[in-house]
Nucleic acid binder design. Structure first.
Length: 305
DNA sequence: TAGATACCTTATAG
DNA sequence: ACTATAAGGTATC
């Protein structure tokens, strides 16, 4: 077990743990007080995630607990080098001020950044990210999160740490071994066969989300659509929230509405053409940061009268 | 290639 | 109480 703390004042543009984890870009963290998405971020709640155990010789899933207090973060972890792991998962290397400077200085983006200072993109484990965004179709964030929790509780390995039990995200094998009916029991609905078949592709070694690494953005997006239940939007989510393609802009209902109202010239009919236009509007390289700020800002009612 | 439709389930609005 | 609608879309025709 490793415990520690560290000042986060040196992170360019600041850091806000609660906003980062509750902004609908990751469904692989849980909040110990059970108040995820309620908007109550006071009291320095603990969050935790359980990472696939591929980094250690024992292959046991790694538990990582973290909270933010005044000017620092505090952690309790089952393995060493927790700060490095956090820095990777929560993109501490990103210079938020510099990124904002590369984005358009318009009212919507400006207000979104002012309202949620310190929100960072995440770098989720690829398989968990892939499954959770397949589940996201036509769902609200609270239910998407609930589905991932149900998957972990039902099919994930349980590990004991610091007197508590934690459920890892299921392996591809574990999900592929479930039946469609089993998964429908978890209220996955029509997503159940998508999740099962995609897990089977990964378990059988036919494809892996990390195969997209190294490809040009558009080729990477196309590559991910080979998974069942993955269209262009979910592919963009995996690229942005897991594989580090910060130019990816998932065109969800919120962003499509914002395009209608704020960037009508970017509406081009097809996903690919609209995507290209809005990425250019958002300055290219870090366009995905604008997407995530705008998404969270609109979803939490930030532009209501 | 572009357009229309079905799809699970739940929460919320009227 | 009951119905309509929408929720970070995708697959299929």
């Amino acid at each position: 077990m490793e415990t520690g703390s560290r000042a986060i004042g040196s992170l360019e543009g600041g850091f806000d743990l609660a906003t980062t984890l509750e902004s609908g870009q990751t469904y692989l963290w849980r909040r110990e007080d059970g108040r995820m998405y309620e908007g109550e971020t006071g009291g320095s709640p603990w969050y935790y995630t359980v990472l696939p155990g591929t980094e250690t010789a024992t292959n046991e899933p790694e538990v990582l607990r973290v909270r933010q207090t005044d000017g620092e973060i505090e952690w309790v972890a089952s393995t060493p080098n927790a700060y490095d792991r956090l820095s990777d998962l929560l993109r501490f290397e990103d210079d938020l001020d510099g990124i904002r400077g590369s984005l358009p200085d318009d009212r919507l983006v400006g207000r979104a950044f002012e309202a949620h200072r310190g929100m960072r993109l995440v770098r989720d484990p690829p398989f968990g990210c892939l499954i959770s965004f397949i589940c996201s179709a036509q769902m609200r964030v609270g239910r998407i999160h609930g589905m991932q929790t149900a998957l972990a509780e039902t099919y994930g390995e349980t590990v004991r740490f610091d007197g508590e039990e934690y459920d890892a995200f299921p392996t591809p094998d574990a999900i592929a071994s479930a039946t469609e009916a089993d998964l429908r029991e978890l209220s996955l609905g029509y997503r159940a066969p998508y999740v099962r078949r995609t897990a089977g592709m990964v378990a059988d070694g036919d494809a892996d989300p990390t195969d997209a690494f190294g490809l040009d953005y558009e080729a990477a997006r196309e590559s991910l659509t080979r998974f069942v239940g993955v269209g262009q939007k979910v592919a963009d989510c995996v690229l942005l929230f897991s594989l580090g393609y910060l130019e990816a802009v998932p065109l969800d209902t919120w962003i499509r509405t914002s395009i209608e109202e704020y960037y009508p010239d970017c509406e081009r009919g097809t996903y690919a053409a609209t995507s290209e236009a809005i990425r250019a509007q958002f300055g290219g390289e870090y366009a995905g940061y604008a997407q995530t700020y705008v998404f969270h800002h609109l979803r939490t009612g930030g532009e209501e009268a």
